[in-house]
Amino acid sequence: MLWPTFIRSLVVCHVPVVALTATATEETKAVIKKQLCMDNCSEIMVNPDKKNVTYWVHNLPSDDICTNFRWLVNLLRGYKQATSRMIIFFRQIKHMADVYEYLETSLKHDAYIDFKEGGPNDNRNRLFDMFHMKTDDDVKDFICTSYMNPNGNIRVVLCSTSFSMGLDVKGVDTVIHYGPANDVDDYVQESGRAGREPSQQCNAILLTYKRCLGSQNIFPSMKEYVKSKTCRRAFILNIFKTIVEHAHIPHFCCDICRLSCKCACSCEDECVCTNTCNQVLPKINTAIMSNEDNDDSDDNDDNDITELDDMFSSDSDSDVLESSTRKPQVIYSSDDEMF
């Protein structure tokens, strides 16, 4: 990380310097200050908490990625263009490509809006698409344009971290991570693609699968977040040294707080209610939970590392080139015809 020191060396000592970042933990801020020689500087911080985002962690028992995303096929087939807009982040390009092919193969004509028998049917009328470092530039532009338009055709983007920065996405009410981000800083940044409209209740969902915590690139704090048995919002904000303001009903906070929600309780003394929460699960959570078997969860996933896991332990953008040598690309430009 030599470039900050180089930049600082170009600035004479009496010139004020401002360092800006979207999200930064205490550790990240310490690195920035050290590299930019910003001793005794002032900090202006904004609370990263989004009260309209509910945090969830769902444990998927299957090793089969198609089984783990069967719920998405059902949602797209059932709701089509009315499907809630979502962004799904992947750590591995292999997983992203496999889900893309699974959706295309399973949905067939249902993958498109106004499917044309004679074609062309491509990213311009498809309900989902894939966005990573090697995606065709025309496709990238179309995806970005569609997601900046509240009425855009694309409902689901399967993506790497390339899609997490610099986009003013509209109407995204669900951000899903298939496997944890590298650290809590990245997770807050990426899950923050949802909840841009304060009046819209949104969901940040982390899907875990066997051995997903095995990568050495994942920080201990992120692993602790996944395994946490206490409020997930409080855990995140504690990383940022920010005060937690529980100003909302617990069932809108996180999956842990939802279990203790008593919003429907009318008892004056000790609660004797059989049902103390009247909040219905969002349909996407209900769909995902249909794949779950909580009794099959493994608390020692981070100790169960295989040679195959190490092969794919890097971030999805960084292993695109390696993956492309193992299987054909499934990227289509805006002028290509599907076949």
Rank of each mutant, 00 (worst) to 15 (best):
E268F: 03
L167R: 03
T145R: 14
I243D: 14
N303G: 08
Y79M: 09
H251Y: 08
D98Y: 00
E43Y: 09
I143V: 14
F115L: 02
H248G: 11
R233M: 06
M222Q: 12
V244T: 15
D255C: 15
G195P: 09
H177V: 05
N182G: 02
L76M: 15
C265P: 06
L259I: 07
S297N: 05
R326G: 01
S164M: 04
K262T: 15
N294G: 02
D302C: 10
C271T: 12
A24R: 04
Q201K: 13
A287N: 04
D129Q: 01
T105C: 08
L20S: 09
A194N: 07
Y102G: 04
F235T: 08
S334V: 15
K227I: 04
K241T: 14
V226S: 00
E190D: 03
T242S: 15
K223V: 07
D138Y: 05
G214D: 06
E268R: 09
H177E: 01
S221N: 13
D129C: 10
S221G: 02
N275S: 12
I88P: 06
S318E: 07
V172D: 01
P150S: 09
V57T: 15
A22I: 05
D336P: 04
S333C: 15
E27G: 03
Q189G: 03
E43P: 03
N203P: 00
R70M: 06
N74S: 12
A181N: 03
K134P: 00
T25M: 06
Y209C: 06
V46L: 13
A82Q: 14
D183A: 01
S215D: 04
R193S: 02
Q329C: 02
F163N: 00
F219A: 13
M38Y: 03
S62P: 06
Y112H: 01
L2F: 02
V280T: 12
E104S: 11
A97Y: 03
S146E: 15
A247P: 00
E307F: 02
M311S: 10
M130S: 13
Q92A: 13
V184C: 14
H58W: 00
L281R: 04
Y332V: 02
C273T: 06
Q92C: 12
N278H: 08
A111T: 07
